[in-house]
Design a protein around this nucleic acid. Structure first.
Lengths: 355, 355
DNA sequence: TTGTAGGCGTTATCAC
DNA sequence: GTGATAACGCCTACAA
């Protein structure tokens, strides 16, 4: 663990100048003999390039940051899983930030781009405040935002379409003959909560169903909160025959409550979740869920960022990932063939525990 | 997005030398008037320190890397969730590596420490080969290994104890009156597979139960592989009354198969998983699982590393995290109060989708 | 208290 | 081809 060798060390050892060492190491045209000497010296000394010095000179770190609200949330993990390999293939490292959904922290991350420790940033903020937009405009490195920003914002942007997603779910439930479809939503002051609430009302209208506020309950995006909210809704409207849930965790909580109340899923009440996290396929009954394409959004964001790193001056682009309805047992009643999609199909990956 | 200001820019603007600027920015004793001028100039110019130049000089990046086998695996995610906040609190950034369980990639990560883009590394290798050990000994930055290394290896090391873990599970099953306890294991050439297999045999012996190779089936650490292996075992031994599974995914696959074969869980066959991933609590019936303390191991590793970064020359330390049996419905038959442990209890974290 | 100058390890531009 | 030499942005003796 002593101080590593530098090109100076090598130059001395090989009896050449540091310029020659650098040339050899970078594959620039050099006399064979020199190449040999330098390579030999580098080999013997166990030389490794210093990435920091390199970055200072080249103004490139080959690092990209991903800032998410909560590293514990499966949705972001699905994104990380896609982002990581894309960046890795392009020779970039991934730096992770978890902002705990605090706006100030997100702003901080944006500002810290000025430190130049990364070449770019992918960020998935919970809300987009004016301050976000201002800081964004002044950002010192390319940024890709996952989540909607106001039209006209000059930034690469990857969006989900939860409006269509909710519509898909309600159409499905309607086709199954359900007419008293409840909504268990998250807080309305979050972007997803607001948009899903509005989409629910709109979809009901399109189906010719009345909007009944007794059928709507607000909780939070957790299993327990979902359970609580579902229970409240069931008390008010024991005749509900379907529950649209604003995410999978809420849906799992709803299933818990339905089961506890002696109702069968889906025979008595059909349940639809959202986000299609790993838990949807793993639960029993498996959960019908609207995928908002977390994985695709992550991949698209990584690709947008890489593209901009190569081509800094192109126009900002907006990518919208279409939703997809994954019908499983919680609405169809037929449990699909067991198939687990949580882990990639690489052979020989184990669970990493030792002992 | 033009070139950011440097201390030179500020010095010019404030009419002082770069040394004074640096002093002010670092809070060294300076005349009030100078401080004022420098701060004003810095403010106006929107100055942000360049982390790369800083690192070159200070030889510290304030970054730490975490190398895991597979970013898709819940076990590693549990570790990342703990590692991240610990590092963040200490002012370190987290760089993520996913090595796809390829030994050569892991060696690469170890070697790349010479590039000095991080101050230290936490690594959770699948197997520890001689080359790992050699590269480890020559590593140019502090490393913490999660997973067992040979005794005497001079490296900070965090271990699970799957031997005791398997023992806990088998004791539990035995107490429930189960006597024909099968094992659905992963590949024997992985560290976890080997140790869990041995632990199973040992625990049976301690309980006075015979070892019957018909009760043991090898698959891989995935749900589908687990299902296949469980099916094979059931065909051979239809009278099995409990299944010990080498991880949660295998256990979920086993439950699928048991259900498909008309057996009740746990009435006919009790099932125990391992690792206590989020899926264990989320599935139905909820899964009894042996926690090997992934979260604790992650936290311990981060703390060991931080400690060494402060105190480079202390003796290597070995931390062993004790296992814990979490009894749930797949063995006890009583479904516990719905409670979701996948996400932290921070309020107001949403699922991050927008639209 | 402040400024000058050297160095952290590389890359790149010059002459030679 | 090769070797001095000047950046990259910052910190820090040392000198003034």
């Amino acid at each position: 663990m002593t101080d590593g060798p530098t090109i100076n060390t090598i130059a001395a050892r090989a009896g050449v100048s540091i310029a020659s060492v650098s040339r050899v190491l970078n594959g620039l045209p050099t006399r064979q003999e020199t190449v040999r000497k330098v390579m030999a010296a580098a080999e013997e000394l166990g030389y490794v390039r210093n990435a920091v010095a390199r970055s200072l000179k080249s103004r490139r770190t080959h690092q990209v940051a991903f800032a998410m609200a909560d590293i514990g949330n499966p949705v972001y993990l699905a994104m990380v899983r896609q982002i990581q390999p894309v960046l890795k293939a392009a020779g970039y490292r991934l730096v992770l930030h978890s902002t705990d959904a605090i706006a100030a922290d997100e702003i901080d991350v944006l500002r810290s781009l000025g430190e130049r420790y990364v070449d770019g940033l992918i960020m998935s903020p919970l809300r987009v405040t004016d301050e976000h937009l201002r800081t964004l405009a002044a950002a010192r490195a390319p940024v890709v935002i996952i989540g909607s920003v106001p039209d006209g914002t000059r930034v690469d942007n990857v969006r989900a379409d939860s409006r269509t997603g909710v519509r898909l779910a309600l159409d499905h439930l309607h086709q199954l003959g359900r007419r008293r479809i409840g909504l268990v939503n998250g807080p309305l002051d979050t972007v997803p909560g607001a948009s899903r609430g509005a989409a629910y009302a709109e979809a009901l209208g399109a189906l010719g169903l009345p909007y009944d506020e007794d059928l709507v309950e607000i909780g939070d995006f957790y299993r327990q909160e979902g359970a609580r909210a579902a229970a409240a809704l069931l008390t008010r409207r024991p005749d509900v025959d379907a529950l649209m849930c604003a995410n999978d965790l809420i849906a799992l909580g709803a299933v818990d409550v339905l089961r506890a109340s002696g109702r069968r899923v889906p025979a008595d009440v059909a349940v639809v979740g959202m986000d299609d996290t790993d838990l949807a396929a793993a639960s029993w009954p498996s959960l019908t869920s609207v995928s908002l394409g977390s994985a695709e959004r992550g991949k698209a964001a990584a690709e947008l960022l890489l593209d901009r790193l190569l081509n800094g001056e192109r126009e900002p682009r907006v990518v919208t990932v279409p939703p997809r309805l994954l019908v499983r047992a919680s609405t169809s009643g037929r449990e699909p063939t067991p198939q687990y999609t949580a882990v990639p199909s690489e052979p020989r990956t184990t669970d990493g525990a030792a002992g």
